[in-house]
Amino acid sequence: MLIYYQNPENLKGVSQMSDARLGRTFFRNAIHGSRLYLLLAVLVTSLVATGYVWAQKTVTITVDDAVYNIKTTKSYVRDCLKQAGIELGPQDAVNLALDEKLTKGAKIEVYRGGPVTIKADGKTIAVVMAKATVEDAVKGAGIVLGDLDRTVPDRATGFKPGMEIRVIRVTEKIEYRESPIAYPVEKRADDTLEKGLTHVVQAGHNGMKREKVRVRYEDGQPINTVVEEEQTISPPQPEILVVGADDMVHTSRGTVRFSRVMEMEATAYLPTDG
């Protein structure tokens, strides 16, 4: 059996080399660990930022005649309104449920509530409500609007507390009417008749026509009539009038041309007339 003995000096060198290697290994491991921590930090930050961007939504809020576009990470309508600083009164209403989850591009409309007076069918109704338009307010009061009915203000006008709304009932009817056709007058010049004189050769007579008309009524009163069809029952007979064209007067002193004829009455007075 052979036993080898190491020189102590050699062992010392080996020990020094091992310490150096351990130092380099530790340094490399430390650098590697730092890089790993840095990478993890960047990854976490990126995930957080991505999650924030993904959770952020653009929402449109319409309230008090103003429109706001806001960015929010809130999940519910109630929280979004609170973030925007919009307070709801006990009579106000919102087009979406307050506990409804928000989606990207959501449109929130806040309707301010209050008293409103509606006049319809001879009655006056006073109610408290919150609606989007005049039409919504009228329907909310239990009043049915026909297709032709109109309101003042117009149906599409935005609702405001304290406003007065009038409902006008509109109907249309088809009616048939007979009416006269006025006869025309035809004038014919006659050189054998003195200028200024006329003579009726043919008497005129009115004709008759039948019309189909559409009549528009508002609250029972006719306001407009449109003739849709017209049929002549009997044509009118024109009046034929002969008009004198002779502007020459023949007298014992010769022929005189005149421009017009005037009828005059002459009177005379004597000194003895009382």
Rank of each mutant, 00 (worst) to 15 (best):
K160D: 00
K160P: 01
P161Q: 02
P161Y: 06
P161R: 01
G162C: 07
G162D: 05
G162F: 02
G162Q: 03
M163D: 01
I165V: 13
R166E: 15
R166V: 11
R166A: 14
V167Y: 00
V167A: 02
I168T: 03
R169I: 00
V170I: 11
T171D: 12
T171P: 00
K173W: 01
K173Q: 13
K173H: 06
I174G: 00
I174K: 08
I174M: 08
E175K: 08
E175D: 05
E175S: 01
Y176A: 03
Y176F: 13
R177Q: 12
S179C: 05
S179Q: 14
A182I: 10
A182K: 13
A182E: 13
Y183P: 06
V185M: 10
K187T: 15
K187M: 13
R188M: 10
A189I: 08
D190Y: 05
D190V: 14
D191E: 15
L193G: 08
L193K: 10
E194I: 12
E194C: 07
K195S: 07
K195R: 10
K195H: 09
G196Q: 09
G196D: 10
L197Q: 10
T198P: 01
H199Q: 14
H199A: 09
H199M: 14
V200I: 15
V200L: 08
V201K: 09
G204K: 04
G204E: 05
G204D: 04
G204T: 08
H205S: 04
H205V: 13
N206V: 04
G207V: 05
G207F: 01
K209M: 10
K209V: 07
K209P: 03
E211I: 00
K212T: 13
K212D: 01
K212P: 00
R216G: 00
R216E: 10
R216H: 02
Y217W: 06
E218N: 06
E218L: 06
D219I: 05
G220K: 02
G220H: 03
G220L: 07
Q221H: 12
Q221N: 10
Q221P: 00
P222E: 07
P222Y: 06
I223K: 10
N224I: 03
N224H: 13
T225W: 00
V226Q: 12
V227M: 04
V227K: 11
E230Y: 03
E230V: 09
Q231G: 00
S234A: 14
P235S: 15
P236C: 02
P236L: 02
P236K: 00
Q237S: 07
P238A: 11
P238H: 09
E239N: 07
E239R: 14
E239L: 13
E239W: 06
E239D: 05
I240K: 12
L241T: 03
V243T: 06
V243I: 12
A245M: 01
A245Y: 01
D247C: 04
D247R: 05
D247H: 09
M248N: 12
M248V: 14
M248Q: 14
V249R: 09
V249E: 10
H250D: 14
T251I: 04
T251K: 02
R253K: 11
R253N: 11
R253L: 14
G254L: 08
T255K: 07
T255Q: 07
T255A: 10
V256P: 01
V256T: 06
S259P: 00
S259D: 15
S259E: 15
R260G: 10
R260W: 09
R260P: 00
M262R: 14
M262D: 14
M262V: 15
E263L: 08
E263W: 11
